[in-house]
Nucleic acid binder design. Structure first.
Lengths: 212, 212
DNA sequence: CGTGCGATGTATCGGTCCGATACATCGCAG
DNA sequence: CTGCGATGTATCGGACCGATACATCGCACG
């Protein structure tokens, strides 16, 4: 999962570890806590060994000398290679069971802008299937085994069941949207402060890159 | 986390691994997928080595002989020890940061019937804090960094934000309930099939054990 | 003027947990 | 009587986390 996320982010622009972590947190903040360096750095090493990424030279063109006075301490910028792009395309295109669990789905979804529509649909439906099964499991417990469990445990299940139902509905809308339109935006009026408009969703072909 | 869950379940009644996994799945189904044997068995071994649990003899009293004909193949029943109960009480009573993440909170919550009220309140408030922070992070991204992210990523964040707000509300109700009543049941009319009544929540002292 | 603290930055280590895999027994339907 | 699905125990490699260590940079506060 981390591999996919790193490859995806480096496709936007080269980055060093720290920056990568921040971008990762921003992009995946909805589905998981901040990624640990204890995962990040070993993974970067692994990707580099596999040839998917390489180290890029530091020293941006605007660096007006100010040279080796303090010896230009280490800041390792990574960029994706051509093989890395292939690898990313391969990973993003295939969908196994791990694509449908909470984390896996979240990561795939976060890169839907780089995923073709058929795959998007396949993933959304697989996820829906998965959540529907989880939902049925919870209904079973709440129905059949209810008297064996204490009130707190039951309340937990109820809350979980509610979340499942809500996610299924969300997925339904996304699927419908995907099938016969193009925009990922769900038409329901957001629960949060409603000042966000977000019209003009980009037709998900390729996205332009920009860096400040 | 697994340690806490196993200790908690074995407190209800002795069990072997397979059974433990099923009960674990039933009790924690709302927060995580089925626990893996690759975690379960090593953890059981660890707990046994630490002296928190012991192997109990198989052969339930009703076993009308039918003896060593096929050599009574292995089925290892574990039961909790006195030290194990102390350990459980210690684990359930203390609350660190890991108590507030998704899995940790879920496990603690699932054993709230064995937790004193002060601790329950502390945990609920810690969890609320954690989710509120996650919520603020998502709002920040949605507000400040919105134009840097594609429509799919934004939709993911929105869905996550919605889940956060919902959970905070849920926690508020539980906290209010906890402060001035006793019942864990949230008064909101459930989204699911509403045939479950659940009055008479047990005053959370000690719960009776029963096994079929 | 300095000094110390919070953000930036790279890195490792032990431990927890997962997914795949292997293997054996039991009850029962065909 | 044969095979298959549920029950049952077990290990191994790998992914990821949390704690920890360490070094530099900019700037606010005294």
């Amino acid at each position: 999962m981390l591999e996919l996320a790193i490859l995806g982010l480096l496709q936007e622009s080269p980055m060093h570890g720290y920056e990568l972590r921040k971008e990762l947190t921003a992009k995946l903040g909805a589905i998981r806590a901040a990624i640990s360096y204890g995962s990040l750095y070993p993974t970067l090493r692994r990707l580099q060994a596999a040839g998917w990424i390489t180290e890029a030279a530091e020293t941006p063109a605007t660096a007006e000398e100010v040279p080796a006075l303090t010896s230009r301490r280490g800041r390792v910028v990574y960029k994706i290679t051509a093989e890395g792009k292939e690898r990313f395309a391969q990973l993003i295109g295939q969908a196994g069971p791990e694509t449908y669990d909470d984390t896996g789905f979240g990561v795939h979804f976060a890169f839907f802008a780089r995923t073709d529509q058929a795959t998007r649909l396949r993933i959304l439906e697989g996820r829906r299937r998965t959540i529907e099964e989880r939902r049925e499991g919870l209904r079973d417990v709440l129905g059949r085994a209810a008297e064996r469990l204490d009130a707190y445990t039951l309340e937990l299940q109820r809350h979980g069941l509610d979340a499942c139902e809500r996610e299924v509905r969300w997925l339904e809308e996304l699927i419908a949207n995907e099938r016969s339109g193009r925009a990922p935006t769900v038409p329901n009026p957001g629960t949060a402060g409603g000042r966000r408009d977000n019209n003009s969703p980009p037709p998900p072909g390729e996205s332009r890159k920009e860096r400040p």
